[in-house]
């Protein structure tokens, strides 16, 4: 069967009636959604004017979703500062989480029973208690330790002497709480990545004389990254939103910033929309970053790496063009 030439056999595609019906329903629902998001409603305040002895009343309209208010506060300095604190918390907590998580994962694989069970116990403890409890715990840690003295146990030797209240301000205790909690989850993710690398890779690295640390750094970790990145992306996005808990210990993050504003003007919904849009924007940027990071670490794992969205779009356009050409009897280009 050929698709070119005059004697081509006509192919009748299958009709997907239920798919068309579903598409139609979804299109209607989407239209309704867009309509309601951008609709206006009465404010409930009647304004009456008397002209030539006649009384005219009308109700001013406002956006149902307070778009003008949202727009007004979207880039206000308080909101931007809150956003900045949220990003700072996310980056700092994830850095602690990833570094400590990888160390814990490597400890879990150690031949030493003490090291591996210490790592296990850490994960057990920090996964086993709610992150909100941990946040409050580190915030109030000064109740247990007013000062921290690092020295040798049972010996009169001290190296460092620290005042807890002066070093652990609310922001730092929040970073500590979120980071230590995250490390427990990251250690499991990193462990899964290390387990996914074939034993033969380590043997090959060993056979050309690499030390254990070299084979971990040059051979195992780069390949584990492929498995580690997707769930880590999840964790970063999840952390971005978990940081909204820090308002309980008095850190002014994005959510706290908008609540402070709405406490004054009572436009709660409008300001929650402001916060939501910012969270969505950051999440979107993070997802794009994740895509390209995944692509980078997929090097060599696939014969043909998946196309980037831009390449795919170009391919789609080419596909449509060639389809159009076949309809007119010109043979389609075979996509490569």
């Amino acid at each position: 069967m050929t698709s070119n030439g005059d004697d081509a056999v006509k192919v009748v595609p299958v009709r997907h009636y239920s798919r068309w019906a579903g598409t139609f329903v979804v299109l209607i629902l989407l239209a309704m959604l867009i309509h309601t998001i951008f609709s206006k409603i009465g404010t409930g305040i009647n304004i009456c004017v008397r002209t030539h002895g006649l009384r005219h009343c009308h109700q001013p309209q406002r956006w149902r979703f307070y778009w003008n208010v949202v727009f007004h506060f979207f880039t206000s300095s308080d909101v931007i500062h809150g956003l900045y604190v949220t990003l700072e918390l996310t980056v700092a907590a994830m850095t602690i989480g990833i570094v400590l998580g990888v160390i814990l994962a490597v400890m879990r694989r150690s031949q030493s029973r003490l090291l591996s069970s210490t790592a296990w116990t850490y994960t057990w403890f920090f996964r086993g208690t709610p992150v909100l409890v941990q946040l409050l715990f580190w915030f109030n840690i000064a109740a247990l330790y007013k000062t921290i003295t690092i020295g040798l146990p049972f010996l009169p030797v001290t190296f460092v002497h620290l005042n807890v209240l002066s070093i652990l301000n609310p922001f730092r205790s929040a970073v500590l709480a979120l980071g230590l909690n995250e490390a427990a989850y990251m250690s499991e993710i990193a462990r899964a990545g290390l387990l996914a690398v074939d034993e033969g890779q380590i043997e090959a690295a060993t056979s050309i004389g690499m030390t254990r640390i070299q084979s971990l750094r040059l051979v195992v970790l780069p390949q584990a990254m492929r498995v580690i990145i997707p769930p880590t992306g999840n964790e970063v996005i999840s952390m971005l939103k978990t940081t909204s808990l820090v308002s309980v210990v008095g850190v002014t993050d994005l959510l706290a910033a908008v609540t402070n504003i709405s406490a004054v003007n009572f436009l709660t919904m409008a300001l929650l929309i402001v916060a939501s849009i910012w969270y969505l924007i950051v999440t979107t940027i993070l997802s794009i970053g994740q895509f390209y990071l995944e692509r980078h670490y997929a090097k060599g794992a696939l014969r043909n790496p998946p196309p980037t969205p831009i390449q795919r779009l170009r391919g789609d356009l080419k596909g449509v063009a060639s389809k159009y050409r076949t309809k007119r009897g010109v043979p389609a280009e075979v996509p490569t």
Binding site: D198, G200, I208
Partner: peptide, 29 residues
């Protein structure tokens, strides 16, 4: 490790470093 570096080994399942190019596989050691 020093002793092993002087003994070459070839495995049944090749065990090439999947994330490195052919060139990098040969130069990394």
């Amino acid at each position: 490790c020093g002793e092993r570096a002087q003994i070459g080994m070839v495995f049944q399942r090749f065990n090439l470093f999947q994330h490195l190019t052919v060139m990098e596989n040969i130069t990394v050691g």
